[in-house]
């Protein structure tokens, strides 16, 4: 059965999760707990925080996220093609290069529009 090869992966994940939980448990039980108001403030270089971090942030981060989705899906399409590259031969190569060229045009457009600039 093909899923059998994933059993060691699950074991590995369980062991890793066990290590993480054990370390978190150590942190929870072994350290001291001293609570007073000034100490519990989030660190702001000694000042009391005035602005909450939970507010609007630069739209460029959204743009990066959108571009990530587009180009990562391109990479996902490239992987199965690359595995069969030598079997597909010239035809497959030309087909894929047309696809990559269209996405490269997209990258050039994004670049030209200034979405990759940070100032």
């Amino acid at each position: 059965m093909i899923l059998n090869q994933y059993i060691p992966v699950i074991l590995m994940m369980l062991v890793a999760a066990g290590v993480a939980v054990a370390v978190l448990g150590l942190a929870e039980f072994l350290g001291p707990k001293v609570v007073f108001r000034e100490k519990m403030e989030p660190f702001e270089c000694g000042e009391n925080p005035i602005v909450s971090p939970k507010q609007r942030f630069s739209v460029r981060f959204y743009l990066i996220a959108l571009m990530f989705i587009i180009f990562d899906i391109e990479a996902v399409f490239l992987f199965p093609w690359a595995v069969n590259f030598q079997a597909l031969g010239l035809f497959g190569f030309v087909e894929m290069m047309i696809f990559v060229f269209i996405l490269a045009l997209g990258l050039a457009y994004v670049w030209k529009k200034g979405a990759l600039e940070w100032e």
Partner: peptide
């Protein structure tokens, strides 16, 4: 989750950087 401005900016930067280089 840290409710701290520095953490928040660091998290944002990390997200954008990791996504960019993952591609």
């Amino acid at each position: 989750s840290s409710n701290n401005n520095w953490s928040f900016l660091g998290g944002l930067r990390a997200a954008a950087q990791m996504f960019s280089y993952e591609v």
